[in-house]
Design a protein around this nucleic acid. Structure first.
Lengths: 163, 163
DNA sequence: ACCTACCGGTTGACGTGTCAATGATGCTAA
DNA sequence: TTAGCATCATTGACACGTCAACCGGTAGGT
């Protein structure tokens, strides 16, 4: 009995069984949620959520084009990840890459007609899926709580890994 | 103004901007959380969370061994995924596979000494990471709310995809 | 001018996940 | 008996992510 009901997680090292159960539930359920959303999007539009993020950013960009590293920063990806992903998207005709006129060694990513159409067709079903799988599952209070939890977790991550 | 403050999400089709913002925060933050935990575990023990799940199940099994499909069911993986993963783990000497004595075409998965040691060394740092990245980031109320949110989301998924 | 250091972007190797197809084996019904 | 048929497990092809190495070009210091 080295630790009898401390003030509340005083110097405790490990999560309680209860906390651990919630952790598992939480992380597994959110993963399942992502995965379901992913396959919904795939089924509705043959796009992955990665494709969707890229197409969304390009759609909103002026001239429907962005420099590669701007795009990476905008959607929060590493450059390498983006490069691989753009390669796959280019093969499918969703985007094109060309050397940037203004910046010497910069690559410009352009939305193609096919890409714009795919994005257009995907948006509505995707938003509907978010509603069905997330919004409709929760009460307004729970939605607000989810927002606060996300903010708290994010803040903690930012403190621990400050970047 | 086709929809002025309905009773509450009456026949609404799409999430509001606010809901969408929370959704994005939520799903991206939980993904970042998983990813941080993954790399913590990797750094502390050279195991992935998949490895950890498999080793945990085997550690708790009688004889530190399980049939492949039992194992898959226990941790909720598809058999194919497990088979690929076991192949990689076997190459690293964490587990062994042999034909099952009792069930004709069943494969038995056994924990090796190296696997047990790797798991033993990983447990404490992993639980500590869960505390630091999740438990410590939230108030007790938020932890409880996270549990309820996970339960509600899970229930909704189960209804939609009933299995 | 030259060396270096950085910067934007790509590439390769590899771990991981899904899907569909394939063995291999036992069960059942004609 | 044997022709299906379900079941257990593996495999191959491919998408996706990370990491580290690499390449070409620009900029700074000496």
């Amino acid at each position: 009995m080295t630790e009898t009901t401390p003030g509340r997680r005083g110097g405790r090292q490990l999560p309680t069984a209860q906390e651990l159960r919630i952790w598992r539930d939480f992380i597994e359920t959110t993963a399942a949620l992502s995965s379901r959303l992913e396959s919904r999007l795939q089924g509705d539009s043959s796009l992955s959520t990665g494709d969707y993020a890229v197409l969304l950013a390009l759609s909103e960009a002026e001239g429907q084009a962005m420099r590669s590293s701007e795009l990476a920063a905008h959607i929060g990806w590493e450059r390498s990840r983006l490069s691989h992903h753009l390669g796959r998207m280019e093969r499918r005709g969703l985007i094109r890459r060309q050397e940037c006129a203004t910046v010497p060694r910069g690559a410009e990513v352009l939305l193609t007609k096919a890409g714009a159409e795919a994005f257009g067709g995907a948006t509505f079903p995707h938003l509907r899926a978010i509603r069905e799988l997330f919004v409709d599952a929760l009460t307004p209070d729970q939605i607000a709580a989810a927002g606060e939890i996300a903010a708290a977790l994010r803040k903690n991550l930012d403190v621990l890994y400050k970047e």
